[in-house]
């Protein structure tokens, strides 16, 4: 379980990215974080595992306040928090297996990780995860030899290798095509359901969020302006989150995309017939 209390962040440049953000994510819940670009979604996620240091507030994961822990304790806490990145953030020149095993770095001493001699159950588990995301055959390939969707699957396997108590996901599909996006999103949801993992997922794509998330949190200029079920997300609320004009434009764009996609599907079907 994760609880944020009055979390705020002001960068050294003076940009206030978060203001008094408070909410709670219970076990097994996947919360979608939506909001326009620059609303502070990434900042929020990165505050939780302290890639960014928050300016004020509390971050409770179980009993521990992550905002207060020292360096050694932070390392231990980070092991419990899996993170999935927008541009995959795999180490490109390492093999897929090494990338997945890097999820175990917090658990093994330096010399073991240096010689790549991880404990047997870690390796077994890494293989299992690769099989789960459908990449068992690619274990010895280098990460930069994979496609975008495959890389993101490796990213998911790496996060899961940590055996996390919380999953942080930053725009997992922003660099992928629509079809792959849905596959990846479905995979993330399935995995969270299997393990009853709480997760926070940043998404730019509102329909995708509505389709997959258990709960939606709307962020605007660093403050929570909506928190509720996906079904409760109506035009008025979206206008509030994105600003009325931007939302109309976004919706039109989305409709056009859908129309074009439907059109293409129809044509393909016609040709096939």
């Amino acid at each position: 379980m994760l609880e944020l209390q009055q979390l705020s962040k002001t960068y050294a440049t003076g940009d206030t990215a978060l203001q008094d953000v408070s909410f709670m994510v219970p076990r097994g819940q996947v919360a979608g974080l939506i909001g326009p670009s620059g609303a502070g979604k990434s900042t929020l996620i990165r505050c939780i595992n302290r890639l960014v240091d928050p300016s004020a507030g509390r971050i409770l994961l179980g009993e521990t306040d992550l905002a207060q822990v020292g360096r050694a304790e932070l390392r231990r806490q980070r092991r419990r928090i899996g993170m999935i990145f927008q541009e995959y953030a795999l180490v490109e020149r390492l093999t897929v297996m090494e990338n997945v095993l890097s999820g175990r770095l917090g658990y093994v001493p330096f010399w073991r990780s240096f010689t790549r001699r991880f404990p047997g159950h870690d390796i077994e588990n890494a293989y299992r995860l690769l099989d789960r995301v459908g990449l068992l055959e690619k274990a010895d390939k280098r990460a930069d030899a994979l496609s975008g969707g495959q890389r993101q699957r490796v990213g998911i396997a790496r996060a899961l290798a940590q055996e996390p108590a919380l999953l942080l996901v930053d725009e997992p599909t922003a660099s992928l095509d629509p079809k792959t996006s849905r596959q990846i999103m479905r995979l993330i949801i399935e995995i969270c359901d299997e393990r009853e993992l709480p997760a926070i997922v940043n998404i730019h794509d509102v329909p995708l969020a509505q389709q997959f998330m258990h709960r939606i949190i709307g962020l605007r200029e660093g403050a929570v302006v909506f928190d509720g079920a996906p079904a409760a997300l109506d035009e008025a609320v979206l206008g509030d989150i994105y600003g009325a004009e931007d939302w109309t434009a976004m919706r039109r764009e989305h409709e056009e995309d859908q129309a074009a996609e439907a059109d293409a599907t129809r044509r393909v079907a016609e040709v096939a017939r």
């Binding site: 092991r79 180490v91 770095l105 330096f110 940590q162």
Partner: peptide
């Protein structure tokens, strides 16, 4: 950052 986020130490970060 991705490697740090897994809880890696400074030396492991260099190495990986």
């Amino acid at each position: 950052e991705a490697v740090s986020a897994t809880g890696a130490s400074a030396m492991q970060r260099l190495n990986y």
